[in-house]
Each structure stands twice: as C-alpha cells, then as structure tokens.
Amino acid sequence: MSALLEVNNLEVFFSVYGGSVQAVRGAAFHVNKGETLALVGESGSGKSVTAQSIIGAMSHKRGTKLNGSILFKGKDVLKMKKRQLYEIRGSEIGFVFQDPMTSLNPTMTIGKQIEEGVTLHQQLSKKEVKKTAIELIRLVGIPDAEQRYHQYPHEFSGGMRQRVIIAIALACKPELIIADEPTTALDVTIQAQILDLLRDIQTKNSTAILLITHDLGVVAESAQRVAVMYAGMIVETGTVEEIFDSPKHPYTWGLLNSVPRLERNERLTPIEGSPPDLFEPPRGCPFVERCKYAMEVCVQHLPPSTAISGDHRVLCWLLDERANRDIGERGEQIV
C-alpha cells in the first residue's frame, strides 16, 4: 500500500516574546491511501499544529519556523508557494475543523459557504454549483436540503453544523481528509452518526483520513493505525490492535489506564504531573518527569526509535536490552 502523505522529522517552532515554543519536534508518520490514521494525545501535544502544517497553514506565518518535510503525493508542502497551497487546499486535502460553532461564517448562508470551494476549484456554472452544494447537504445527512441551503449557521444544531463542516471538506472530493477533533462537544449519539458518515464517505470514495482526537473510544472504532503524540513528538505508532492490546510506551499505558473499562471495577489511574514546558523541553525523553520507570539515561538522552514489528515503533529506553524487563503490557510491575 503506497503512502499518500509522509511526514518526516517535522519541526514547528514559534518565536514569541521571551523565547521559542517548540510545538512539534521531529514528528514522523505516514497515511496510506484509503486508510484512517488516528493521531492521539492530550491537549497541547502538538496534534492541531501538525495538522495545520500539513495544509500549509503554518508555512508563511511570521515568527514560525518549520523544518523537515511533508510529502503529499510526493510533493513537499513546506516548499510550496502560496498559490500552490491554495490549489491543494479543499481540492486534494479537505479539513474538518474541531469547533463547528465558530468555524462557520455567521453572516453567510450554509449553501454559499459550501459553494466557495466548488467555485474556486471547479469550472462549473452557477446552476451546477448550487446543485452540487445541495447534493452535498443531502450527502451528509441533513434533511430538506433545498430549504437548508438558504439558512444560516445559527439555525442549525451543533451536530448539523459539524455535518456542514464535513460537506465543505468534501466539496471537491479530496483524496485526504484531516478531521481535527470532529466529535468534540457532541453527545454520543451525534458522535456515532458523524463517525458513521466519515466511514461511509471513505468507503465510497477511497478517501484517506487523518483523525486527530484524544478520545480512545473513537480511535478503536474508526482507525486502522494509531500515532501517539506527546510534547510535540510521536512516541509510539502501530496498528489499533498493537496499541490497544500490546502498548509499549509508558505514556500509552497511562492513556489506556485512564480510560474506563467494563471488565474492571476499580478507580481510574490518571497520569500524574503536567506536560513539559515547550519553551525548554527535556533534553532526553519528553515523558521523563511523569514516568515512574524513568532511568538516568532517560534524563540525558533521547531514546532511539525501536521497531517492534513492521508497523509498531516505540520511542522508549525500556525497549533497550539493558533495561528492566519486569514490566507488564500496561505498566504494571511483575513480581
């Protein structure tokens, strides 16, 4: 299976008063054609910055420094000029923003907002553009599409607005959809409907999806592979089965142990401490201050990427042959 998107050693630094924020530090992953990759991690881990870098939203911002490469269909997004970026946004890469309440223009009708991308990237008549917009409204499951076309965002519920955001992202049938927290602030019933909608679209159009979320339940239901992000770095990647059944990084253990499970009747175990200050990130492992298995080498040196299998890679010194092996699959001590 060939990679549609390849992110290699991506670094994104923001120059601010007092120093530089190292938001993304050496992130690397890929998304294959027609698959769903989930990028997971707690708030502030760099997920959204990574997503916006993929569509070139960070490339020409003042005070932002980017290194590495983002190859979409073999072309480096970071080297593209503004005009080239405009051509792929919407037409080849669709973006589902995380807050439907603020992502839509309150002064424009829903129909006109969906039409913008179609008008920009496709040579269609006004009648054909309107017909396409109505078909998209119908495609994402909004009833009375002809009437809804003329309505404004405030006349829609939160779930309906999220469907409109998805319709905008689908307007030009992109090969890749980046869905940034697409189910945030939605109740579980609407969440399920949105996820079903994304799956249906993927099946019909063989669309690749980069799903950004902190909800592991959504990941288990929707993705084929997972990349776990912490403090701007990808600390573990693998298939859904590998990450959920045989995780290897202490941060991944912490994420999984903090999720309610029906088979265990016990208190949840939170990850103690706070993420590191990205003005001055740790010299070694980014998780060292919160890891109860940290060793001296973790403080001084960044761990190498260890291959567990073809898809499963981990950034952790515990995988070194000299480390303590008396640790179970989810971080429990073996006696």
Rank of each mutant, 00 (worst) to 15 (best):
L5K: 02
Q22Y: 13
V24H: 00
A27N: 02
F29I: 04
V31P: 05
A38Q: 01
G41V: 11
S53W: 09
A57W: 12
S59M: 03
H60R: 08
K65Q: 14
Q84E: 15
I88E: 01
G94N: 02
F97T: 06
F97I: 13
T102H: 08
P106V: 13
T109Y: 11
T109N: 10
V118H: 10
L120M: 11
Q123N: 15
T132N: 10
I137K: 04
R138V: 04
L139S: 10
G141K: 04
G141M: 08
F156D: 07
M160H: 10
K173V: 10
A179P: 07
P182T: 05
T183A: 07
L186K: 03
T189H: 12
Q193I: 10
L195A: 02
R199P: 03
D200F: 07
I201D: 08
I201V: 15
V218C: 09
R225L: 05
M229E: 01
Y230C: 00
G232D: 03
M233W: 00
E236P: 06
I243W: 10
D245T: 11
D245R: 12
P247E: 07
H249M: 11
T252I: 13
N257Y: 12
E263K: 05
R264S: 04
L268K: 00
T269R: 08
G273F: 01
G284K: 03
K292S: 04
V299Y: 12
S305G: 03
C316M: 11
L318V: 11
I327V: 15
